[in-house]
Design a binder for these strands. Structure first.
Lengths: 130, 130
DNA sequence: GCCCCTGGTTACCTCGAAGGAACCACCCCA
DNA sequence: TGGGGTGGTTCCTTCGAGGTAACCAGGGGC
């Protein structure tokens, strides 16, 4: 079962010598940050309003919530809608592209849950050996 | 096509209030770093020696290569073998678990390649609108 | 008049990730 | 004798992600 459809590194490095131009590094930079995945996970279920998200992800600061939402919106993964109520409310939801991202994301999430016990064990072994 | 097997956030936040205990945050912390994915991608094809990796990933510093390899080894994703040649050489290769990680990883890589053009476009739109 | 709700923006500060360069031991080879 | 190739480690310094707190507008309720 050969599972490595990943392009040879040398080819990648040559083609995308500027990391900011490499799709993979680019995407992982964004999603490797502290909050993006949590926000996307929340929005996977239903649209959320700003304050709702802030309450749901209790340990995020308002600053980082705004900023991460902006970044995700800039990348076209989420859509922002302002409702002119009083006070105005803002709804965030996944775009179609954001929704398509749930496929690889849930693959990672599944893998993490499945192998986390083994990882913990490996860490203990490693610490003990050192 | 409901694609959201991701557990409700509230449940996750409750169960793993300490982020370091959350499998997903934990794994993504490791792999969201600057070098892990590149190293794993290289090792996906064949075992590499330290110096080979350093040459392959030309812009990594020796310090970060050592450190990232140690972290991956600690998590049980790669195996380190010392050959008592002169000079001694060290081989790194994916463990079975490391190999299993290629499945979700290549899902992400595929997604990144497929949607990167759309992301670039979205960024330009967003920048223009601002 | 005052405070609170909405969803932000801004200035300031901290702390850790990462880079650079120097150093290490060992051995080979010229 | 000393330079180079193994695979590291250690120190120093920078840089930026992220936290905290204050402030904003507009309207409602007391």
């Amino acid at each position: 079962m050969p599972v490595s459809p990943i392009a040879p590194l040398s080819q990648m490095m040559a083609e995308y010598s500027d990391p900011s131009q490499c799709p993979v590094r680019n995407v992982l930079d964004q999603l490797g940050d502290k909050w993006s995945v949590l926000i996307i996970s929340a929005l996977a279920h239903r649209p959320y309003r700003f304050g709702e998200l802030k309450r749901e992800i209790s340990d995020i600061s308002q600053r980082m919530l705004t900023q991460t939402l902006r970044d995700l919106q800039s990348d076209g993964l989420i859509e922002r809608t302002v409702f002119p109520t009083t006070p105005p409310s803002v709804e965030y939801k996944l775009s179609p592209m954001g929704h398509s991202f749930l496929v690889p994301l849930s693959a990672m999430v599944d893998w993490a849950f499945e192998h986390f016990p083994a990882i913990r064990e490996a860490r203990q072994e490693f610490a003990k050996a050192a």
